[in-house]
Amino acid sequence: MSTSHPPLLELSDLRVAPVADDGSVGKEILKGISLTLRAGTVHALMGRNGSGKSTLSAVLMGHPKFRVTGGSMKYLGEDLTGIPVHERARKGLFLCFQYPMALPGVGVAQFLRQSVKGVRGADVPSKEFRPLVKKHLEALGIPQTFMTRYVNDGFSGGEKKRMEMLHMLLLEPRLAILDEVDSGLDVDALKVVAESINRLRSPERGQLLVTHYQRILDYVVPDEVHVLLDGEIVRSGAADLAREVESRGYEWLAKGAA
């Protein structure tokens, strides 16, 4: 990989604050994050609850409840700030939600079809779409009847995550951000999810794996690990940093800790 290409994701001193319903901007949640993720790599972002992991995931995808108050976030050299949410998806970004929304009355097949059409900018012929979906359903261990249900409506936790994986595999995003995709999954489901992420890995693509636990990193081995604490990256390192966090917890990384 030539380093002359801009990185997939480049965060420099990124600061983010929440925006309340009345438009007022709250206290900064992310307090200056810098990170460079190159194509062909997987980064893990670890942190305990409340450290700002979901905030980072959300702001990358353009959630209206968060505002960039300083620094920058660049995707393939382009500043993401101000780019509409659906345009980010069309440029190859994908966020796997920690809590995917239910869309009552919206069929899975219809949603996926419209999504693929939106991202590709052209309708997908049924002849192409159906076998593609079938292939992924089989790999994910999802019954065909899934396609006639309503999106995430009454889905179990495991089904929701499988739905997210199905969607991700169909869209083949350039940069996938996975927010706690491993939480609440049993070992079998975890393996299915990890397998999906590994299937997506390629020299052109990258993944940001946001997680609380090290467990999934046994199946998706990261190139770099960052530890987020109270809105700041307090430590970056190789895969073994994750194991260290697993055995020692997060406390020793806290500011001022010995």
């Binding site: 659906h86 998806a89 939600f97 869309l103 219809q110 999504s115 939106g118």
Partner: peptide
């Protein structure tokens, strides 16, 4: 949040609205 979710998957704001209203009527 539903609108946002649909838009993160590439649907334009107008298409996302349509999708959700049609779902409401489904």
């Amino acid at each position: 949040e539903q609108l946002h979710f649909a838009m993160t998957r590439g649907l334009s704001p107008a298409d996302a609205r349509k999708l959700i209203v049609l779902g409401f009527f489904e």
